[in-house]
Design a binder for these strands. Structure first.
Lengths: 340, 340
DNA sequence: TTTGAATCCGAAATCGTTTTCGTTTTTAAT
DNA sequence: ATTAAAAACGAAAACGATTTCGGATTCAAA
């Protein structure tokens, strides 16, 4: 019932631990014959190296950390999917932690990962995060880092993002091209960069197309979810604004608004056209199916890990690594919540 | 730039590594004074123990593994959420792997986790899994194991489940109570236990209430997703069956069916009442909002980790642990896809 | 036969902590 | 002053793998 170790194999074969280790790692100073013997014995005993010892010796864990605001979220779980798939290909495991959109928790999670000595960290910031010294600590610990989606411009590291501003611009322009004249915007909280960028894209699109930007038509959805969308839509109606278009920061907020409009006898897209953001997979199942902007989560996850791996490799080989910033393409997906 | 170790602290203070280690772990055979000194120095140098060494010495990693069919799935991401939250409370990290509903991959993932020497494993089986010797291997490795949701009756270990059969019975009975006479069922693949159980519950409910069970009204949704639901609904219509009720194995399949019915001018719930399963969070956003059975993912995750922890504790202390099987409550949630 | 180079093997140090088991010192009791 | 007990500390052996470096053996060339 005892663990099988190199020593065990060595004793069985009457050779040294050194040779056994080398044989298994295919060193060239071990004869073909002993290699064969060792391998056979290892297989017979069902030997697996003790990772704890390997970690200690090699100073790496073949494990990377991932910090995201929330797991239960279609976009983020897509990212997770992309990361796990890519990591697996190269023998890495992924430890996932959530910040629950709290800066304090995020700070703790970073410490936790560093104390676990993961080989690298990938993260998307919490909405509330302002100070980034805990992120700087990652760099100080010389741990490879990649940020994605919600990033910080204050930190120099590889990043994978979409051009939120341009994507929002195009979404808004899409509504304008469909003939909308008064377009409301449900934005996110004031702080997160993507909330800001999408808002700016919306504003710019209006201005570029001769529509006046009216700050009263901009509502804040703090948690950008379904309920927030409902609340904002109700407020919009209560405020008595006449609009013919809505660009919501997320598909969930858009869906919330959609239900409120329907409840109030407002026809979508006839009376109000709606476009969301993220191409959340059920956007097509609601009625009318939601037009939206495709945000490639899977691809983002994959790319994030790829960049991280490059940096980890460079660190191991002692070569220098220059941070890469990758911007992924987005595109408007036309469905039924906007007029044909 | 060098790592701070116990040795480092010991040298700075002119004492032995042993004493430093003991001081930090609050052994009683170290004087108050030296403890204070050591702690001060440790803080000053920002010492953090090398987990790799600790792991090797203590033979535990404070890390647990989780294998699920898919991350991008509301129910499973809820489970993940519950597990991560609970694990975090006790200083455990969670490594997540997906089987992608493939038995072969599942087998690999198990090996991977065992080779990483995680302290415990939680898993929900892939739909296609028939042989369970890879699961038995976990027990053989003396690694604590908890199965949840999709479990195997062949393995003796702690389990967290819902009573699928009863829940399905109640869902079907709910439709019957609403006056449905011919109720179709969209079931999952033939193998998974929960697919079987839900089917049996459906059948039993019909029989108990004087309705004849008609196997022609049972359709298989292999992947139990939106598209499968659509396909099954189309087939149902093509087959020319007149039904007034549908119990679908998942909310997604139910939603798929719903859209097909609407496209064909069939009114829900007037012509056909629909009930789904899972209380997937967007069930309420579609129109009509979907009646369903609530499946408590978060609670399931929490409970799974709690049981795992008990077993890990017992193992550490050398005491025996008896597997626990916990059945969580479900309940029918009435919305608008069933008549009032 | 000697030298040189291959070829193969192993002793031992190392990674950083934990823990057992002594040894030394101090304190209290006689 | 002597002894017993208690308190404080450390040497050293783990944990299991990796890797450096030197030693041994073989074989071929001079």
């Amino acid at each position: 019932m005892k663990e099988v170790t190199l020593k065990q194999i060595a004793e069985n074969l009457g050779i040294s631990v050194t040779t056994v280790s080398k044989a298994l790692k295919d060193y060239k100073d071990v004869s073909k014959e002993t290699k064969a013997l060792v391998r056979a014995e290892a297989k017979a005993l069902n030997y697996t190296p003790n990772v704890f010892a390997v970690n200690l010796r090699t100073k790496e864990s073949k494990t990377v950390g991932l910090i995201i605001p929330e797991v239960v979220h279609h976009f983020f779980s897509s990212v997770i999917n992309g990361i796990i798939n890519e990591a697996e290909k190269h023998g890495y495991l992924v430890i996932i932690l959530q910040s629950n959109e709290s800066e304090e928790l995020e700070r703790k999670q970073v410490e936790l990962l560093l104390s676990k000595r993961v080989d690298g960290i990938m993260m998307s910031l919490a909405n509330t995060t302002v100070s980034v010294d805990h992120i700087a600590a990652i760099k100080k610990a010389n741990t490879p880092l990649v940020m994605f989606d919600k990033i910080s411009k204050l930190i120099s590291c590889s990043k994978v993002v979409i051009n939120d501003r341009q994507a929002a611009y195009e979404a808004t322009k899409f509504l304008i091209d469909k003939g909308c004249k008064r377009i409301a915007h449900f934005r996110g909280a004031l702080l997160p960069q993507n909330s800001i960028d999408r808002f700016l894209g919306y504003k710019k699109a209006l201005e570029d197309h001769g529509l006046t930007f009216d700050p009263k038509l901009v509502y804040i959805c703090e948690k950008v979810d379904y309920d927030d969308g409902r609340a904002a839509a109700k407020q919009l109606l209560a405020d008595g604004h006449k609009i013919d278009g809505l660009f919501a920061i997320t598909d969930m907020a858009a869906t919330g608004a959609l239900t409120v409009f329907k409840e109030n006898g407002i026809q979508v897209p006839k009376d109000i056209a709606i476009i969301g953001f993220s191409n959340w997979f059920l956007s097509q199942a609601i009625t009318p199916a939601l037009s939206t902007v495709d945000q490639p989560g899977l691809k983002m996850g994959r790319k994030a890990f790829k960049l991280l791996r490059k940096e980890m490799k460079a660190k191991k080989q002692g070569t220098t690594f220059l941070p890469v910033i990758k911007t992924l393409e987005t595109k408007v997906i036309e469905r039924d919540s906007t007029p044909k």
